[in-house]
Amino acid sequence: MSAITPAVEYAIRQFLGREAMLLDNGRLDDWVNLLDEGILYEIPLRISARKQEDQFPKGAFRMHEDMAMIRKRLERMGTSENWAEDPASRTVRTVGSIFVEEDEGGGIFRVHSALSLYRQRALDRAYEWIPARRIDRIRIEASGECRLVRRTIILAETILQTPNLAVFL
């Protein structure tokens, strides 16, 4: 464990900014290269409950995915039958409130961020807004490059107002 240096923070901020840019620009093949082979990408199911800890029923999720599943999603998006995103939504991801909480060892840092995802689908005039918090595990390699090892997405909504999660958060 070591202190979180300005260099670490800078690398992580650059990483998250680049990631959002790649996703907004539809560069999914470049984006997937930012993920560690052992990635866990998960969205726990959230309900309305009095206590914060009761909002996330144990083991319940919307998504809980490994690299093979993510790659299959990309493959699906590459078919001519991807009706949920045909054409791809126009998105703007705003990533903020970045907080590098802890060095977990092995070059892995626990990073909190807030994501505000604007999504306008196909011919829609109205937009959908997907607000979420993310808890990431990001590894900074010896070369200085970052890899996403784990992402836990905490949606603000209990009943999703966008009809599907065909976009990455």
Partner: peptide, 17 residues
């Protein structure tokens, strides 16, 4: 959940059609 859920690879297409 991979097939039929808010992120399901089957279901997301139903939600649009």
């Amino acid at each position: 959940q991979f097939g039929f859920s808010s992120a399901g690879i089957f279901e997301q297409d139903d939600t649009v059609v």
